[in-house]
Design a protein around this nucleic acid. Structure first.
Lengths: 137, 137
DNA sequence: TCTTTAATAGGAATTATTACTGTTTAGGAG
DNA sequence: CTCCTAAACAGTAATAATTCCTATTAAAGA
């Protein structure tokens, strides 16, 4: 995991993530490691998770803060990583997905489908300023 | 919208949600209404959004706090509303969904599929204590 | 071993959200 | 129409989640 430098803390954090299948929060990881690493700080956990997520070694689930929608009917969303907006997408709700998920013994009421990418508006801007294409917002 | 009682504040909050297609955060709604409702408080916005979401008049997107996963390969999740856990689900990643989403002119890199329901473990508990079935945790 | 600088610890600061308390008001009874 | 009561509000305090800041520690190349 060649991020920049090896660190005991990051290694242990990654271990915790690999061991349990529970998608722990930063705080859960902190609590788990604290006993064996008394000097560990919560900031370190957050920083390393962020870093590993940026590098693609782990995945970060869910967005930053809750958002709301007046449209109750299920529909999917696009999170534009360029402008940060959350847009509606006309991808139809596929109930078959729910039934497929229930194969594993759970009971599904609904699902949320969030795409990540660049919205059409931002794609347009890109075309105008092709020089920016390499920049990493 | 027969929640309990009519309130000007709730009406206006709902209006904002219907007008803009931007899935505003609670604070964005507050900022938008504050000029015309100088005594509006942020707590009122949060409370009414929560209330309307509970009643099903609006939808709340995204979960409570960020979680992390050591599994980088795309896979879907089940949020169990009973025990609050986020579990992996063996529903295969469907790249066709990304292509379908791009019909609208955006560029999609990946998607996140989160199911909501009751996990198999909690389903088991239900069977044991059928009396609780009616309770609303 | 020494040096350089990324990474850490610890705590302060920020942001998002909920909870609490006293005041206002919707809406039904008289 | 006026009065009453509980629901909803405003304002503020409290909590939770996350990031930022500064001095210190330590990885790893010379």
């Amino acid at each position: 995991m060649p991020i920049q430098r090896y660190s005991r803390q990051r290694e242990r954090i990654y271990q915790v993530l690999q061991e349990g299948r529970c998608h722990p929060t930063a705080e859960m990881i902190y609590d788990k490691l604290k006993p064996s690493m008394p000097r560990l700080s919560l900031g370190t956990v957050y920083r390393n998770l962020q870093q590993m997520a940026d590098e693609g070694y782990i995945r970060r689930l869910e967005g930053p803060s809750a958002r709301f929608d007046a449209e109750v009917r299920p529909h999917s969303h696009l999170y534009c990583r360029r402008c940060g907006r959350m847009l509606d997408l006309p991808v139809p709700y596929d109930e078959a997905l729910d039934r497929a998920a229930e194969e594993s013994g759970c009971q599904v009421e609904r699902h949320e489908l969030v795409f990540e990418g660049i919205c059409s508006a931002c794609m347009g801007k890109d075309r105008d300023q092709a020089a920016d294409a390499a920049s990493d917002i």
